[in-house]
Deep mutational scan, measured.
Amino acid sequence: MSIQHFRVALIPFFAAFCLPVFAHPETLVKVKDAEDQLGARVGYIELDLNSGKILESFRPEERFPMMSTFKVLLCGAVLSRVDAGQEQLGRRIHYSQNDLVEYSPVTEKHLTDGMTVRELCSAAITMSDNTAANLLLTTIGGPKELTAFLHNMGDHVTRLDRWEPELNEAIPNDERDTTMPAAMATTLRKLLTGELLTLASRQQLIDWMEADKVAGPLLRSALPAGWFIADKSGAGERGSRGIIAALGPDGKPSRIVVIYTTGSQATMDERNRQIAEIGASLIKHW
């Protein structure tokens, strides 16, 4: 067993022997301040990774656009098919120029040779490549099948209805392509620590998230040296922004954090800054 596999296998073990965790309302004060600064709703939840206990939450059962955070769930569904012998990570998928959609920095470079399922998941999570996500959605049967996968996990809230990039439209009061912070946090925890996926697939999923290259201005910008984070960000229309993450000190994750916002007129930089400040408060009061 590799060191990384050992780390993920012992996530519940280490967490069980940690000192009790206590909620700190100071972080919620910052979440509410972010709402004021952005002029928009902000949803927040913080779960203990081992027990699933909610440590703090704000608007945990209000719907927010998922945006690209759905790509972690998508690759979880792909990995479940791999575990069941219905898919192979090494299978190569070929596609054409007509398949390319807006923001496809990886797939646009491989029109000639195609990409493997493993490479597509890596591109979808680490670079948020939209064509990679659409190609992977095709392998599982489309958005409705991802929703069905989530329902089978016990998540009857999260739903995907459309493809990239239309799913980022974020129309107010439109339930399409949305989740709730509580539902997303619980589902992410199941994917990373539950028995739904094999140990190898859980490790692969967290490795992809740990290698995320496009979430630097968010929670990662607030992390002290030595902290662990595996995350996936999302951005959408109407001032929408979000991030889902597993993080913790001492090089291992111990909490799940989900943050979503929508309806702001603020710039992307300002949305990023507010999420980073929430992260800084979380870490300060850990």
Rank of each mutant, 00 (worst) to 15 (best):
L49I: 13
D207Y: 14
A246P: 00
G263S: 08
Q97F: 15
V214S: 07
V29N: 15
L196I: 15
P165E: 06
A16K: 06
H5W: 05
T179P: 00
D177H: 01
Q4P: 08
L188W: 04
L137I: 09
P65T: 04
W227T: 02
H285T: 15
M66Y: 04
L146W: 05
L100Q: 05
S264T: 12
E164F: 00
L111F: 09
A276R: 13
A132R: 00
R202N: 06
D113F: 07
L247G: 01
G251Y: 09
T179V: 02
F14Y: 09
E270W: 07
L135M: 10
S221D: 09
E108H: 11
T262R: 08
V117L: 11
E46A: 10
N173Q: 15
V31D: 01
Q86V: 14
N272Y: 02
V72E: 01
E56V: 08
L223P: 02
G263R: 07
I244G: 02
P25V: 11
G85R: 10
H24G: 14
R238H: 15
R189N: 11
H285G: 09
L137A: 06
L146E: 02
F58L: 11
D113A: 12
S104G: 06
G52Y: 05
R81K: 14
T158D: 01
H24F: 10
G251V: 07
A40W: 06
K109I: 11
L19N: 15
E61I: 10
G234E: 01
V82C: 11
W208A: 03
A40G: 14
V101F: 08
F22K: 09
D207C: 10
M153R: 07
L150T: 09
F6S: 08
I275K: 00
E119W: 02
H24P: 06
R220N: 03
M127V: 12
V78R: 00
K71N: 00
V21E: 05
R7S: 09
A222L: 07
V257A: 06
F70R: 02
G43L: 00
A34Q: 09
G279L: 04
Y44S: 01
I11A: 10
L100R: 05
E108P: 07
N50L: 12
L191M: 14
T126V: 10
K53H: 13
I243K: 00
E119Y: 03
S96I: 10
P143L: 04
G234S: 09
Q265W: 10
E61H: 15
P172I: 12
T187N: 11
L136K: 00
A84L: 13
K32N: 10
P25I: 09
P181M: 02
L167K: 02
G141Y: 05
S57A: 15
I283K: 05
N98E: 15
Q37I: 12
D155V: 01
L120A: 06
A124L: 04
L111P: 07
G226C: 09
Y260N: 01
S68W: 00
I206C: 13
L218T: 04
T147V: 11
G194M: 08
D207Q: 13
G239M: 02
E277Q: 10
S264R: 05
L38M: 11
L197N: 05
P105H: 06
T186E: 15
M180W: 11
F13E: 02
I11M: 11
S281A: 15
A211L: 13
S51A: 08
C75R: 00
M268V: 09
G154L: 05
P224S: 06
G234V: 00
W227P: 00
G39Q: 11
I93D: 02
V72A: 08
T158S: 11
V31Y: 01
W286Q: 03
G194V: 07
I45C: 13
C75F: 06
I278W: 02
T158Y: 01
M66Q: 06
Q265G: 15
N98K: 14
L196A: 15
R81N: 12
P165G: 06
A16T: 11
E119V: 02
V78N: 02
A124G: 07
T267L: 10
T139M: 10
R7C: 06
Q274W: 15
L10Y: 09
M184N: 01
K213W: 06
Y260P: 00
L47I: 15
R7P: 11
V82S: 09
T186W: 15
A215G: 09
P253E: 06
M268I: 10
A200W: 07
L135A: 06
S68Q: 00
F228I: 08
I278N: 00
R118N: 15
S122N: 15
T198Q: 11
V157A: 12
A276K: 12
Q88P: 05
D155C: 02
F70V: 10
I206S: 12
Y44V: 07
E169K: 13
P165H: 06
F22R: 10
H285C: 11
Q203C: 02
G154Y: 05
L49N: 05
W163E: 11
L196N: 15
S51V: 06
D83H: 04
E102A: 13
A124M: 07
L137K: 01
L205W: 03
A225V: 14
T178G: 03
I283S: 06
L223V: 13
G85C: 08
N134M: 04
N173I: 09
T158R: 00
L223S: 07
Q37S: 13
Y103N: 06
I278D: 00
N98P: 09
I93K: 04
L192A: 06
K232D: 00
A235Y: 02
V106K: 07
F228G: 05
P60Y: 09
I259Y: 04
T138H: 15
I45P: 00
T107E: 01
N272S: 05
N98G: 12
P181H: 01
E35L: 02
